[in-house]
């Protein structure tokens, strides 16, 4: 089997994203977890690029790896979690059940997606290139998806009110 450059890139990025995701949940130090999460976001952005979704790839880096991760790091530093040993969780039978169930769901999803012989709508490269661009997404947002787009603004407004209600120091 001859592997194209794209396939090699896919396997590399997929391996990187899975490995970094595992590292996120296994590191003791929260700062290390956050740094691995950034690696994860970057490899996901790379995966989006191989799918010709340039807009989502860029947004992934700007919004997640940029803005949100900075907030994460700040919160972790401000919280000053201190004794990292105490963060380590004990293994209980409930957690084992949870792990078992999660694993079952993962296997189920993998089986369904990979082996059930499901036909996805044919992968159309030209179409994918077309709809991945910033122009196309912008046009769709302001025409077909104008209504959801406007609702998102209300959603964000409600979130801001909620944050103010929850975090305001003095209540009059």
């Amino acid at each position: 089997m001859i592997m194209t450059f794209e396939t090699v890139l896919f396997y590399f990025l997929a391996a990187a994203s899975i490995a970094s995701a595992v590292m996120v949940i296994t590191r003791r130090s929260p700062v290390m977890s956050v740094l691995f999460l950034i690696v994860n976001f970057f490899s996901l952005a790379g995966l989006y690029l191989t799918l010709h979704a340039q807009f989502i790839a860029v947004i992934q880096i700007i919004v997640y790896a940029g803005a949100i991760m900075v907030l994460f790091l700040f919160v972790i530093m401000l919280l000053n979690l201190g004794d990292e040993q105490r963060l380590a969780e004990r293994i209980s039978y409930k957690k084992m059940i949870a792990v078992g169930l999660s694993f079952a769901v993962l296997m189920e999803v993998l089986y369904v997606v990979a082996y059930s012989g499901t036909e996805f709508p044919t992968k159309n490269l030209e179409r994918a290139v077309e709809i991945g661009t910033v122009e196309y997404i912008g046009r769709e947002l302001f025409t077909t998806f104008l209504f959801p787009f406007e609702i998102t603004s209300i959603l964000l407004l409600a979130a801001i009110i909620g944050a103010v209600v929850m975090a305001k120091k003095k209540i009059d």
Binding site: F145, F147, P148, I151, T152, I154, L155, A158, A159, I161, G162, V165, M166, I171
Partner: peptide, 25 residues
Amino acid sequence: IDLVVLFLGVELMSLCLYVLAGFMR
């Protein structure tokens, strides 16, 4: 009648309810 709108509706409602549940700070 669109899953995107349905999802945004669910989120808008839930977000307000999360805050309302914790209104008695």
